[in-house]
């Protein structure tokens, strides 16, 4: 009779060894993958923290050679751009997501929309920049906050469509049916019962999409363009944190590099706070679409 613990066949130990090795290899891959995360975050803190003070948020960039200055206009600009993009993309995205989750939407149109949203997420952001440049900047004959916001909204909309769809899909069909059985019209059921039930999921999806587009640089380069001064006008170029960090990073001036690190720290901080709070609030139920 063989023992439960015994049976020391060579083959058995080889199998255990192979399993442990492969398991170890995947753990090693994971740890190695996380090295850049801590490397980046560590450098951001080391180089950026000293550049962050009140002036960073309240003053304008200074010309080369002058000490001090900040990125207040860029912080404000990013907030404005992201807010505008959200105002444009969320109603569109949530409506389209609603369309996809109405019962019986599995036809050609719905699949085409899902497919288009997924492919649109994969379109390089710089191309979105070209698109908005041709459609908005050139007719208006100026770079503008509006153009920047439209570019960001174009990137945000498909994200919102897909997260809305995912969130609503989690609402049990029975809930929808029981509302319909009470005589509630279909549109009211969808809008006030289904969406309200899924609201948390939709909101976190929007937050994640927001964090994503707040970090975009490429589509802003020739739409919002950047601005060294305070501006909130829709029809004038506007500063953005990402563009400012980019401009400063590729400049030859150490003082600007210091500012770039501080800007990058603020930017990353904003993004990570959103990610962290979404994770805390929802566990891992809601994830950014890929």
């Amino acid at each position: 009779m063989s023992s439960a613990v015994g049976q020391l066949s060579l083959r058995y130990w080889w199998r255990k060894f192979k399993s442990a090795t492969m398991m170890g290899a995947t753990v090693a891959a994971t740890l190695l993958t996380l090295v850049p995360l801590f490397w980046v975050l560590g450098y951001l803190l080391k180089q950026g923290l000293s550049g962050i003070d009140l002036a960073f948020f309240t003053s304008l960039p200074r010309p080369v050679g002058e000490k001090g200055g900040g990125m207040g206009n860029a912080v404000l600009g990013t907030l404005e751009l992201v807010t505008l993009a959200t105002v444009m993309a969320v109603p569109l995205g949530v409506s389209a997501g609603l369309y996809l989750t109405e019962p019986g939407r599995n036809g050609l149109m719905a699949n085409a929309v899902r497919f288009a949203a997924d492919v649109l997420m994969g379109v390089p952001s710089i191309v979105i920049g070209i698109f908005v440049y041709a459609l908005v900047v050139r007719p208006m004959k100026t770079f503008s906050a509006l153009a920047g916001a439209i570019a960001l909204a174009t990137m945000m909309a498909p994200l919102v469509v897909r997260t809305t769809e995912e969130a609503i899909k989690l609402v049990p069909l029975e809930l929808r049916e029981s509302a319909l059985a009470l005589g509630v019209p279909r549109w009211k059921t969808s809008l006030f019962i289904v969406v309200r039930t899924a609201a948390r999921g939709i909101a976190t999806g929007i937050l994640l999409a927001l964090a994503r587009i707040a970090g975009e640089t490429a589509p802003l380069l020739f739409t919002a363009f950047g601005n060294q001064f305070w501006s909130t006008s829709l029809t004038r170029p506007i500063a953005a944190l990402t563009v400012q960090v980019y401009t400063y990073a590729i400049s030859p001036f150490p003082e600007w590099h210091r500012q770039a690190w501080a800007g990058a720290l603020v930017l990353t901080g904003m993004v990570l706070i959103v990610e962290l709070s979404v994770h805390m609030l929802t566990g891992k139920k809601v994830r950014a679409p890929r």
């Binding site: 009779m1 023992s3 439960a4 613990v5 049976q7 058995y12 199998r15 255990k16």
Partner: peptide, 14 residues
């Protein structure tokens, strides 16, 4: 067969 399969060190694979 009289041996605890949940004893420490027992391999579920076996």
């Amino acid at each position: 067969d009289g041996e605890n399969i949940y004893a420490p060190g027992v391999d579920p694979v076996q």
